[in-house]
Amino acid sequence: MEEVKLHYDVNAYDFICAGEASGKLKRSLKDLGFDATLIRKVAIAVYEAEINMVIHAEGGVIDATITPEDITVVLADKGPGIPDIELAMKEGYSTAPENVRSLGFGAGMGLPNIKKYTDEMDIETEIGVGTTITLKIYNK
C-alpha cells in the first residue's frame, strides 16, 4: 500500500454534519483493509476531536496520512485555544455550553477518550490563535 493522504473541512457550529469527516475517514480505512478494532480506535478519537472543533473552535481542517505502519491525523482549528491543557485532559472537566450537553457531549470525556485510543497525542495551542492536535495510531 502506498501512503494515502486525505483532507477534510469541518464547518463551525454545524452539529448536523459534525462527524461527517470522521465517518468518511472510517470508510476509507475500511476500504484500505485495516483491522476493525484499529479502525474503531481511529474513528472514536477523530470523531471526538471533530466534535471539539465544532463545539469550541470555528471549525477547521483535518488531514490524515495513512501508511501500512500507522495512521496520523492532524486536526487544526483557529479557535480560542485551550488555556489549561492539563485541566482539559482531566476526565469530567468540561467547558461545553448546555446546548452541547443536550446533544450527548460535553461530559468532559472528549480529550481523555482521544488520549485513550491513540498511541501518540500532541496538542499545540495558543490563546486566540488556535489549536492543532496531532494523533498517531500504530497498526500493530
Binding site: 462527524g19 478494532t37 450527548g104 460535553g106
Partner: peptide, 26 residues
C-alpha cells in the same frame, strides 16, 4: 451521553438511548 458510549472501544452491537439527534447515529 455519547462520550460515555465512545469510552469503550470493544464492539457493542446495540445502543439504547433517550437522546434524539444525528450524533446518536454517528
Amino acid at each position: 451521553m455519547m462520550s460515555d458510549v465512545l469510552a469503550y472501544v470493544k464492539e457493542q452491537a446495540v445502543l439504547l438511548t433517550g437522546l434524539v439527534n444525528p450524533q446518536v447515529v454517528r
